[in-house]
Design a protein around this nucleic acid. Structure first.
Lengths: 351, 351
DNA sequence: CCTCGTTGCGTAAGCGTTTACGCAACTCGC
DNA sequence: GCGAGTTGCGTAAACGCTTACGCAACGAGG
C-alpha cells in the first residue's frame, strides 16, 4: 500500500495536494476536519491520503499551530535506580489517558533533581511540551512550582495536599493518603496490634502527619518513628536495623513506601524476626512486584489509571480554556492485605 | 535574571537579534558555533542571550535543519505491567548516553504490540524521531525490521544474534547471553547439580539454544523444559506448578527472566520446596529488585549502561555518516550469585 | 431577475529557525 | 598601491504546515 519515497524524503502536503489536484489548504482541512470543506471532498481526500501513505511533518505542524501536542511528566524528588516503579506505573496511566487526546508523553529518567529541573525548563521554553504533570513528593516545593507557573505553561500537580493559593494555569490532583492508611490501621488494630512503628524517609512528609492522625483515631500508638536516608530499599534496610534496637519493639511496621518495606523485610528476616508472626509489615504504592515478595507484601494501592486520567483531564481542560479556574480532583487509595500483615497467631512478644 | 515575557509568548530569534543590533544569522551562528563568526562577537552574543533568557524554538529548529534530535526506544514484544523493569533500566542507560549528543529519548509504554508498532511508524514518518533503538525479544522479527528499514530511518537492534543480511542504515548490538549463562551453569555444576530445569516463555527463544549448549558443555542435563504463557510472574508461577509434577525433579531451575523466577520462587515456596536447599533458582536480567527477594535471587546481570552506550554510539554513527557500514557491537553478561543458588547443604532429594 | 448570505476552495502570509549566497572590509604578498 | 584571498556579517529563501482572507458559485427570498 503506502507509496514510499525511496530516497528517504517524505511526501509533503504540497506534493500531495498537487497530485490530488487540490490546494494544500484543502488537504489540511480534510485532515483536521476544521474549516469549510464539503464532506464529499473530505472523504475522497482522506481515502487518497491513506493510499499515498502521507503523514504530516509534526514539527511543521507544531510550528504553525502553536502547540507541540506533548506533555512532560516530572517527578519532583530524587529518582534513583528502581525508585521509579512508581513513576513508570503513573506514566503508563497518564500515557493511556493521553492517547485519545493525541498527545505524547515525555519523561526524563536520568540525572539528579537539579539537572532534571533544568531539562524540564528547557522543554517548556523550547516549546517541546505544552504542559507538565508534576508529582510533588514528598512535599510541594512551592517556590519551584511557582517558578514553573511563571513560565506560562499549563501544569497539574499530583500532591498530598492542595497549596493555599494555586498559581495561574495550575490544577491539583490530590492523592488522598488517608483512605488507604485508615483501612490499614483499622486492620492492624483489629488484629490486636497496639503499637506500630513507622519507617519513612522525610520527617516533614505530609504522609507522616496523616498516618499519625489516623493511628491516633484508632487507638494505636505510632512509635518509634524511624527515618531512612532515602526511599531506596538499602536505606530501608539500614534504618530497620536501627529500629531493632528499640524497646519495646512494635508488633507492626508501616513503611512509607514499598521500596522501604522491601528493605525492611530483608532486615527483619536476616535478624531472625519472622514476618508477619513477630512483625507485620505494610508498604505503600502497591508496586506490581509487591505480591511476589516472600511473604507477599501488604500494601496500599494507588489507582494509577485513575490518577493518570484525572491529571490528564485537568491538564486538557487547562489547555483548552486557560482562563476557567480548574476544579481540583481527588483520588483515593485502598488497603490490600496480604500475608506480610496476616493476622498473627496470637501476637507474640519477642524474647 | 532571565527576562520573562509575561504574556506567555517566548522571545524569538528575530527579536533577540534586533535588541542586540545584529542579524538573526549572526545569533544563530553564535549559538551553534558553526559558520563564520568572530570569537569576540560570539562570546558577547552568548553572554547577552544568557541574560535575555532566550531558548530557541525546537520545532522551528527541527524543521529548518531536517533533524528532530530525538530517538525512540522500542521493545519488540509484549510490554505488560511490570515486564518493563528491563525496559526502564535500558531506557535509563540509553538516555544517559544520549545527553552529550543533545538527543532526547521517546518511549511508548502503553498498548499492545501492534498498536505500538503503528505508533513508532507514525513517529518515523512524522519526523518525530531521527532514529530508533529496537529491542528484539525474544527473536528478531526480520520482516518487520526490514519494513522499518524501508522507512529510511537509522536503526539499531539489540538482539541475541545478528541477522544474516543487515538492512541499510541498520546496526546490531549483540547481547551475548552465553557469557553469563556459562558462568551460572559452571557454578551450578560445581555445587554438585546434575540435572537442571529450564523455565522460559518461548520455545523458539534463541536463549534456550544457548543455554542448552552451555549446559551440555558442562555435563549438565537440561530437563525438563517448561514454558510459561508469557514472561509475567503469574505465568511463571503457573508453569512452575506444572514443573513440580515431573520426576525426577531437577535440583536447580534456570529461569529465562527474573520475572519468571519471581513467580517460580513463590510457587516452590508455597508448595513446600525450599529455595535453595531443595531447588536452586537463577534468573536473568538482574533487575534491581532481585536482591531484595527472599531469598535474594541469583541472576545474570546486564550492563545496561554499556548496552545503552553501545547502542547510542552506533546510532550516532549511522546518523552522521549514513553510508559507512557500521561495525556490530557486543555486550557480555555476568553471573551474580546470591542466596537463591547458594551451595546447598548436600543437595537432598525430595521425599 | 437581482441581491444577499452561504458554501467550497484557492492564495498567500505567517510560524521561528537555518544557511547558501553575496558583499563589504580587511590582510597580505608582490 | 593593487589584485587575490580571507573574514565577518547581513539578506532572504527555504523547511512543511495552518489559517485568515478573498473570491467565485450557488441557493433562496423578494
Amino acid at each position: 500500500m503506502a507509496t514510499q519515497q525511496t530516497d528517504g524524503r517524505r511526501l509533503t502536503i504540497r506534493e500531495v495536494a498537487q497530485t490530488l489536484g487540490v490546494s494544500t489548504a484543502t488537504v489540511s482541512r480534510a485532515i483536521h476536519g476544521r474549516g469549510r470543506i464539503s464532506p464529499a471532498t473530505r472523504a475522497r481526500i482522506l481515502r487518497q491520503l491513506e493510499q499515498l501513505g502521507y503523514t504530516p511533518n509534526l514539527h511543521a505542524q507544531s510550528l504553525a499551530r502553536q502547540r507541540s501536542m506533548a506533555v512532560a511528566l516530572e517527578y519532583l524528588g530524587e529518582v534513583e535506580v528502581l525508585s521509579d516503579s512508581f513513576l513508570v506505573e503513573l506514566a503508563r496511566g497518564v500515557q493511556k489517558s493521553l492517547v485519545p487526546h493525541r498527545y505524547r508523553l515525555l519523561v526524563n529518567l536520568t540525572g539528579d533533581q537539579e539537572y532534571r529541573r533544568s531539562v524540564l525548563r528547557q522543554w517548556i521554553r523550547a516549546r517541546v511540551v505544552d504542559g507538565v504533570i508534576v508529582v510533588a513528593n514528598p512535599c510541594i516545593d512551592v517556590d519551584w512550582l511557582a517558578a514553573l507557573a511563571e513560565e506560562g505553561v499549563a501544569a497539574v500537580w499530583i500532591a498530598y495536599d492542595a497549596p493555599d493559593p494555586t498559581p495561574p494555569r495550575t490544577a491539583v490532583v490530590q492523592l488522598d493518603l488517608s483512605t488507604g492508611w485508615s483501612e490499614a490501621v483499622a486492620y492492624l488494630r483489629e488484629c490486636g496490634h497496639r503499637q506500630v512503628g513507622y519507617l519513612g524517609a522525610y520527617p516533614d512528609d505530609p504522609a507522616l502527619a496523616i498516618i499519625h492522625s489516623v493511628a491516633e483515631c484508632c487507638g494505636l500508638q505510632l512509635a518509634p518513628l524511624i527515618f531512612a536516608h532515602s526511599e531506596m530499599p538499602a536505606d530501608g534496610y539500614e534504618a530497620t536495623v536501627r529500629l531493632l534496637q528499640h524497646r519495646p519493639l512494635p508488633t507492626a511496621l508501616l513503611a512509607r513506601t514499598d521500596l522501604l518495606a522491601f528493605g525492611a523485610m530483608q532486615a527483619l528476616q536476616q535478624h531472625g524476626v519472622r514476618v508477619p508472626d513477630e512483625m507485620a509489615v505494610i508498604g505503600h504504592d502497591d508496586l506490581p512486584i509487591a505480591q511476589w515478595m516472600n511473604p507477599p507484601l501488604s500494601s496500599i494501592q494507588i489507582d494509577y489509571a485513575q490518577l493518570g486520567r484525572s491529571a490528564v483531564e485537568l491538564l486538557m481542560r487547562l489547555l483548552s480554556n486557560p482562563d476557567e479556574p480548574p476544579v481540583p480532583s481527588r483520588v483515593a487509595t485502598r488497603f490490600v492485605p496480604r500475608r506480610s500483615s496476616a493476622p498473627a497467631t496470637p501476637p507474640q512478644r519477642r524474647r
